[in-house]
Design a binder for these strands. Structure first.
Lengths: 196, 196
DNA sequence: GCCGCACTAGACCGAACGGTCTAGATTCGC
DNA sequence: GCGAATCTAGACCGTTCGGTCTAGTGCGGC
């Protein structure tokens, strides 16, 4: 695993990443693969080829602060993506499908080791700031779907189904090492969401 | 955390559990809360009040073998439950809802620290026997839904949606510390599944 | 030139990790 | 009653963990 394996979903970095950005990118990638406890600081340092001093300079809060930054990064990334897609007046089901297809690509690229969104990061210390950050990210994504679907009570339900089928589908896909189950569950969910 | 906090979903143990069963039960409960890497052997021993010698006597393969046993336990438990429910000729949507409601109870009982099914255990060493065991469990549950839904291609799709919405919904619920999102996504999925 | 600051570099620390091993207790067939 | 098998008990081991700390490096303004 080197820093080159880590790609931001859209917009490959035009400027060479600084140490801080590289740490966040590597941390995100590793956490998505093995969860919070499964990743050692030394793993992250190895992936970035940076010494310990750099990490604790940029993230005095250590592992948890870095993890929170990683969550914030992916949260922003996906949120911006959702905003852009919905801005084109796309139907919610179509946006969900698009997001799912991108997740499939990530899954395949990582040989089904990485969980694209936040799934595995949920294996984190309970009641911590990290858990809160993950929760916030999910709330933001949920809200995007909800407002795009009209903001009604039914829209809320549909948004829940969208996100749940996506996260759940990713989990099933990663375990079975095949994107099939993810595609199936998400397309069916998209179908239902697009109905009025 | 004591052994008393751990409850099998149905059938509270009539006979006092032996050391081996207690280890499996405690391990399952802890793994569901913090994932594979998040649980130390010492945590399990503390929860069961058993010495290390006992663990390595019953599970010479150590942590991973114990985790596999825990996965097998919950897999059988849920599988048997599904078989029983489907045996009553219940509609798949109704069975899904029932399972979800049981998950809600577990979530609430654990104050949203435990992930009822296998979600968090997915944070496990890739390519291991443990990952395989998790995958097998999910395959079995999926097959139950699939055959109950008629065994067609559409049935397969619906089964995927059922499991994905359940696992995904659990994840959302745990993070938000509220069963609301789980209920919403699962009821919507159940609705769709019951349609022909 | 040179001072100050942001950052790199990695030795070092105590604690906790998973796992091994030997000694003792208990239970069982006979 | 007794010996073997099963299980409990916990000291012990080497490794790795997250985190601290001091020394050094490079680059900016002045």
């Amino acid at each position: 695993m080197t820093i080159r394996d880590i790609e931001t979903p859209l917009a490959p970095p035009p400027t060479p990443m600084g140490s801080k950005e590289r740490l966040v990118a590597a941390a995100l990638s590793l956490f998505q693969a093995k969860g919070y406890y499964g990743v050692a600081i030394s793993d992250i340092l190895e992936a970035t080829d940076l010494p310990k001093g750099s990490l604790y300079h940029h993230f005095p809060g250590g592992k948890e602060e870095l993890a929170i930054a990683a969550v914030g990064f992916i949260a922003d990334e996906v949120d911006a993506r959702l905003a852009a897609e919905f801005g084109k007046n796309k139907r919610a089901g179509a946006v969900l499908l698009e997001l799912a297809h991108e997740c499939v690509i990530w899954l395949q690229r990582s040989d089904y080791t990485k969980t694209p969104l936040l799934g595995l990061l949920a294996a984190s210390p309970g009641e911590s700031a990290l858990t809160q950050a993950i929760c916030d990210a999910q709330k933001r994504w949920l809200a995007r779907f909800e407002t795009a679907l009209g903001g009604t009570e039914a829209a809320h339900d549909k948004a829940c189904l969208a996100l749940a089928s996506l996260e759940g589908g990713i989990s099933l896909a990663r375990m079975s090492r095949s994107s099939d189950l993810l595609i199936r569950s998400v397309t069916l969910a998209a179908l239902h969401i697009n109905q009025r």
